[in-house]
Design a protein around this nucleic acid. Structure first.
Lengths: 148, 148, 148, 148
DNA sequence: GTGGTCTAGACCACA
DNA sequence: GTGGTCTAGACCACT
C-alpha cells in the first residue's frame, strides 16, 4: 500500500499477521480475537503497539469491516485494546493480563497448556499415543494444506 | 420357534468413551460427532458396532436426548452411521471412508495431519517454536480437568 | 462510506413455492427437502439464489421454525445449501449436482426417470396398464385440493 | 416349497406379488399394507382369497415375521383381512370398501386419482409440463433401476 | 434482522 | 425397549 501515516517511531505497526481459515467452523471475528490475543500473550505485540485500521484489515482479509470492528470492539470491552479516535487502535497498557487477574507469563502458560491439552486429547482419540507425538511433530512438514 | 438369533461375537458395543468439554466453545453435538469420527478413524469402532442408545448417552452426558439424536442424525446423513429403529444405531459398512473417496488408513492420516497442523500453527501464534514442542509434550502431564 | 454493495440483478429470491401435504405420510421436513431439490434440479432455483428465511417459511407453512431449520440443515450437510448467519440461506454453488458426481442435466433426468418408474409401478399395482396412462393423464384435472 | 395344505379349490392363493423397496423411506409394514390394498382395489385379490402365511412371506421378503404380522394385523383391524386360526389369512368379504363407506370401484378410482395427482405434482416440481407426460410414459422402458 | 444451539416434552413408528 | 417427528420456547451468535 502506498499511503503512509506519520507516527512516532516508537509506535510499531503490524507486528501481527492474520491468517483466517473460513472453513474452520470458528467465526471470523473470533479467529481475529484469538490471533490478537495470541500475539499479545506471546509478546509479539506489546502495549502501545498499533493495530491495522479496520478498513485496511478488512481489505486484507477480504471480510466485512463490521466483522473487524466487532473483533476490535470486543477486545476493547475487555480492556485489551484502546481506540484513540483519529489515530487508531492500540494495545492497551493492561493488555498482557488479558482480562485475567494473573501475570502475563502465567496467562501465556495457561493458554499453551490449554492448546497442548486439546491436542494430546485429540490425538489420543485418533489412536495416537502421547509418546509418538514428538516424532510425529519432528517429521511434520508444513505447507500442505491441513485446514478443513 | 426354537432358533435364537445368535449375534456374531464380533458385534461389539460401546468401544467408545465420550467426554464433553462445555467450555470448549464447540457445540455439544459437534463434539459428539468428532468423537464418533475419531473412534472410527482410529479403528476403535468398526462397521457393525453398535453405539450407545440415544437415551443412555443422554443420561451419561447429562444432555437432552435431542442433542444426541442430532449428532447421530448428522452422522447418518453423511453415511457414517445407520439406524435401525427399534434396535439401535450402528457404524455403517462404508463408514471408514468417512465420506471421502479414500482408504481408511489414508483418512486417518489426513485427520492426524490436520490436527497436527492446527496445533503447530496455534503454538507458533503463541510464540512457541516447533522445535520446542517435543519437550513441551514430554513434560505435559494430564489431569487438570477440563473435561466433564 | 459511500459505496453500497450492489447485488447482481440475477440474485433472486423465492423462485420456489412450497406446498405441503399433511396427509402424505411423508414428514414435513422431508417434503420441504424434496421441493428444494426439485426446484434446483429443474433450474427454477440456481446457485446463489436465496431461500425464504426460516421464520418466514415457518409462518407461511404454519409449522415450527425448527422444522424448517431441520430441512435446511440437512440440505446444508449434503452441500446443497449454504447458510450465512445473519443474511440467510442460499443455494450452494455446487448444488446442481445434488451430491451426485454427474452433470446437472443428468441429475434431473435420473430423478424424472425415478419418479416415472415409481408411478408406473404403482399404477400397475392398481391394475392400470401402462398403455392407459396417457389417456388417464390427459383426462386428469387438478384442483381437488390435497395440498395445504 | 413342498408342503401343501388342502383347501377348497375356490380358494385362490397368492394372486399377489410383493416387491419391497427397503431404501424407499416407507416402512416395510406399510409397503406391504399398500400392496395388499392395491391388489384388492384392482381386483387382483378378491374376498375369500388367501394370503401367504406370515412365515412364508417373511422368508420370501427376508423380513422379520413380526413385520408381516403387524401389516396383516393392521389390515385385520380395518376389516380388510380376516384370520381363521389354523387355516390362514383371507381377504374379508367387506374388503373392497377398504374401510371407506364407498363402492369398490369408487375406492379404486380415488386411489388412482391420488397417485396420479402426486405424480403430476412431482413432475411439475421437476419442471415437466403435464402435456409432456404422455410422451414420457410411452418412451419409458422399465428394467433400469429407478429406486433410491 | 438473520440462523444456531439446546431444552423439555408430547406423540408416533418400529422390533 | 429402540429411534423419529414435531412443537414451544429460551438464549446465543452473527451481520
Amino acid at each position: 500500500m502506498n499511503s503512509t501515516i506519520l507516527e512516532p517511531e516508537s509506535s510499531r505497526l503490524e507486528r501481527i499477521r492474520f491468517s483466517l481459515n473460513p472453513a474452520n467452523g470458528a467465526p471470523i471475528y473470533r479467529q481475529i480475537i484469538q490471533q490478537v490475543e495470541y500475539a499479545i500473550l506471546s509478546g509479539r505485540m506489546r502495549p502501545g503497539d498499533r493495530l491495522p485500521t479496520i478498513r485496511a484489515l478488512a481489505v486484507e482479509l477480504k471480510t466485512n469491516p463490521n466483522t473487524i470492528a466487532r473483533a476490535y470492539g470486543e477486545l476493547e470491552i475487555r480492556g485489551i485494546l484502546t481506540t484513540q479516535v483519529g489515530s487508531g487502535t492500540f494495545v492497551s497498557d493492561k493488555a498482557p493480563l488479558l482480562g485475567a487477574a494473573i501475570s502475563a507469563e502465567e496467562g501465556l502458560n495457561r493458554k499453551i497448556r490449554e492448546v497442548l491439552g486439546r491436542f494430546v486429547q485429540d490425538m489420543r482419540d485418533l489412536g495416537v499415543d502421547k509418546a509418538e507425538l514428538p516424532n510425529l511433530i519432528r517429521n511434520y512438514k508444513e505447507g500442505e494444506s491441513h485446514d478443513v
